[in-house]
């Protein structure tokens, strides 16, 4: 068989892209479509072009306004996220060790999980006034229930044999929960943390729009809201991009890394 025949049989190599490269290509295409349509529309009050938005993003970043707003939002978010995790840990640990705790958890989650955190904002305003405490309160609510639900489902899915092996080695009480159930349920816990993060982020931005806290220290939601009121539409788009970027970074950098270092390495996830 000659070489030329072999060449003919071999499949033609098309240029291949890694999944990441494909996403970049799609992003560039979307930006181009946006740019083209905005120019065709010619109304930057309604739809600023991609370049106008990028310019606005650059200028609010350089003058320090956007980074300040990001820090304000993220600090409220991290506080709420942290408190939410803490409460979820206590409740699910109780539920894992005690039947009353379990009933309490299922009752509370079935009551509060369907309740949108934003719906609690009036109560929060009443109790904590206009300020970061109210924002923190609704953020905690947004994180707590989905996370508690995911942890609990994860604990319950821990195989009976693994549970018995743990107790056989002398684990009981808190050591049983933290040295056995938590790592065994980590895939569920991580997805709960992801879900809780997404809920908290959306809730926070929405809550900031409803009332901006004091204008000076308002976060990204307030930034978007005030710029709309001032018809600075390019800044509104810049704010939205910032919201998306932060979500993207947390998802791809933090959660993906956590997953790779833990459950994927341990063969607990696909």
């Amino acid at each position: 068989m000659s070489l030329s025949t072999l060449d003919a049989v071999a499949p033609r190599r098309l240029p291949t892209f890694s999944p990441g490269a494909r996403q970049v290509v799609i992003l560039v295409a979307l930006a181009a479509i946006w740019e083209a349509y905005a120019r065709y529309l010619g109304n930057s009050l309604l739809l600023p072009s991609f370049t106008e938005t990028a310019e606005a993003l650059w200028s609010v970043t350089r003058n320090g306004e956007l980074p300040g707003r990001m820090v304000a939002s993220l600090s409220v978010l991290l506080t709420g996220y942290g408190i939410g995790i803490g409460i979820a840990v206590v409740i699910t640990a109780l539920a894992a060790l005690n039947q009353w705790g379990e009933s309490l958890l299922s009752l509370l989650t079935s009551m509060f999980n369907p309740l949108p955190a934003i719906a609690l904002l009036p109560i929060a305003l009443l109790w904590f006034g206009v300020g970061t405490s109210s924002l923190t309160f609704v953020t905690v609510h947004a994180v707590l229930w989905p996370l508690a639900l995911a942890c609990h489902a994860g604990f319950r899915a821990v195989p009976q044999t693994l549970r018995m092996a743990g107790r056989n080695m002398g684990l009981s009480g808190p050591s049983y929960v933290f040295a056995l159930l938590v790592p065994a349920a980590l895939p569920s816990i991580l997805s709960g943390l992801r879900l809780g993060w997404a809920f908290a982020w959306r809730t926070l931005i929405a809550a900031e729009m409803v009332f901006g806290a004091s204008a000076r220290s308002g976060g990204l939601g307030w930034f978007i809201f005030t710029n709309r009121a001032q018809l600075e539409t390019a800044n509104v788009f810049a704010g939205l991009l910032a919201v998306i970027l932060i979500g993207l970074v947390v998802e791809t950098v933090i959660f993906s890394t956590l997953t790779r270092l833990t459950v994927r390495r341990w063969g607990q996830e696909g």
Partner: peptide
């Protein structure tokens, strides 16, 4: 009175090891 490491068990199932 209860489970303890003075009676170590080897189970039939393979998932008795801590995967992490």
């Amino acid at each position: 009175k209860g489970p303890g490491p003075d009676r170590m068990v080897v189970f039939q199932e393979f998932d008795q090891l801590l995967p992490w």
